[in-house]
Design a protein around this nucleic acid. Sequence first.
DNA 1: CGATGGTCTGAATCGTGGTTCACTCCTTCG
DNA 2: CGAAGGAGTGAACCACGATTCAGACCATCG
Lengths: 206, 206
Amino acid sequence: MAYRPTERTEARRRATRERIVRAALELVARGGYREASVAAVAQRAGVATGTVYRHFPGKAELFAEVFRVASQREVDAVTGAATAQGDAPERIACAVETFARRALAGRRLAWALIAEPVDPSVEAERLAFREAYADAFADALRDGVAAGELPEQDPHLTATALVGAIGEALVGPTSPTGGRTDDDAVVAALVQFSLRATGAPVHVRR
Amino acid sequence: MAYRPTERTEARRRATRERIVRAALELVARGGYREASVAAVAQRAGVATGTVYRHFPGKAELFAEVFRVASQREVDAVTGAATAQGDAPERIACAVETFARRALAGRRLAWALIAEPVDPSVEAERLAFREAYADAFADALRDGVAAGELPEQDPHLTATALVGAIGEALVGPTSPTGGRTDDDAVVAALVQFSLRATGAPVHVRR
DNA sequence: CGATGGTCTGAATCGTGGTTCACTCCTTCG
DNA sequence: CGAAGGAGTGAACCACGATTCAGACCATCG
């Protein structure tokens, strides 16, 4: 025996893996899942295609991780907003706005995470992603109902519907040519919609 | 010259084409787009694969037609409901209920029409489908706003969001194992959600 | 009939990626 | 140094499903 993997080589390995994931993420954010072929990812990461398979069992696993990472980032932001100070309506408004603004900032990625065609195994990741979103909303809703700030309702269904509503409203403009609508206006309208949908009392927001 | 296509042969030709479309629709309704390979369609229609290409330039065109037909049917139903008698809230409730009930009756097809991965050219068809849905809602909303029954809002955005909300709420349970939730309850909750979202005054619906 | 125009057939072909693997190169340590 | 254990390479391989096409079969009409 004369060779033992050491910290240094470990680090290099991790770095390569990292680069592959980042490259994949960039490609998805740019051109969606379909543009992100293994060959393209490898090229962008500066490695040979075979190298990808040294780090991941297959394309599905690679992209499952990519989606997991990207989703987590988004969900964390929204969850943070939904657990901020304030009453339920305020928290919901905040979460919706966060969701919407982040999606608009990276439409292509948002589309990939929310609506693009992907492999079944990657799809599973996306389902989890939506669930996580819905959960963030659902928690705030539950609190609001308990506190009497919101009318009686099924929090999970309302939350799911909200996720769908926001997704559709944002992805619609995304996938076609790219509606040149005013982002602020869209966000504001979505917040209004969401507050009404939850049954929050309408105050004059000014 | 000794041969001229006649009414009889024309009819046979149309019948074959018809069978292909129907077979494709059935396959989509059963297993979604990905299960619906050209070979499978041909087999189900009782023709050879090559025959499909005698009636359609390619798979994309075939399924564009399939989606168009299926969509039209659904949209017509919803549009009908949305243009029925009554004030805007009633019409919207009616449209939402129609949308939801029909989707629940054929979940797989609904999923294919609303959310499944498809070729880009077929995707265009689906976009049109969503637009049509949204338009049906938007019209009722516009009327409601004009009549002072609903608060000031961007009807198109509200309509789009509604389509997304309903789609997500219905498709969510569809794609996984298949939530065993009570359909009636879901529909009722969705109607409530939609009415609130549009800003309709909450009356006791009984 | 039989010549003509057309549809139907289905096995072979093609294109597109994902995946493999024999080989080269690098690192570690006796 | 040199044997041992990977990591990285990239051209070749393969699976899969859409598409093609040469021939079989059929309807029309002079």
